[in-house]
């Protein structure tokens, strides 16, 4: 083999390594230079063919990626709009999403008013809506969350 072949493929090897390879793969019978060149030309053609990727495949891959991302965004958006209504917290009398003293206060005002009290505000389940239910809601408001400390 000629040294210029190594330069052609830009292979950086040590001289010792090249010598060892030559000794290992040296043909036992004499091979003409034209055969050697023909083998090298065929190998080069095959390598060129493998590395040639048509331009359209890049465009197709990009388009597929855009479609996949758009599909995911579309599905997520649909899930958001189809989401069930937020769960109403127990003791959240004023339905503001938090249980605090304002819930107890709202219930206390309702009990003291002449209007009929909503039976669903029977928070302690004793069948009557009274001061005990107000206390239940107020105690829920001040309860320390476990694991916070």
């Amino acid at each position: 083999m000629k040294p210029k072949n190594n330069e052609q493929f830009d292979i950086q090897t040590s001289e010792q390594f090249s010598d060892d390879l030559k000794a290992l793969f040296e043909p036992t019978v004499p091979v003409g230079a034209h055969i050697d060149r023909a083998v090298m030309d065929q190998a080069a053609r095959r390598l060129r063919r493998r590395s040639r990727v048509p331009q359209w495949t890049y465009w197709a891959a990009s388009a597929a990626a855009v479609l996949i991302v758009a599909g995911i965004l579309f599905l997520n958006d649909n899930q958001r709009t189809d989401a069930p209504a937020p769960v109403v917290l127990k003791n959240d009398i004023d339905r503001d999403g938090a249980v605090n003293i304002l819930d107890a206060f709202a219930l206390a005002r309702q009990i003291e008013s002449p209007e009929e009290v909503d039976p669903t505000w029977d928070t302690n389940g004793d069948g009557i809506v009274d001061q005990k239910d107000v206390d239940t809601v107020a105690m829920a408001a001040v309860k320390l969350n476990e694991g916070v400390l």
Partner: peptide
């Protein structure tokens, strides 16, 4: 006022009250 009895002997407490 209202408070969680579990807060006693502790270093954090939530306190609340109202008046009609």
């Amino acid at each position: 006022p209202y408070y969680d009895p579990a807060a006693l002997a502790n270093d954090r407490i939530i306190i609340a009250s109202y008046s009609t």
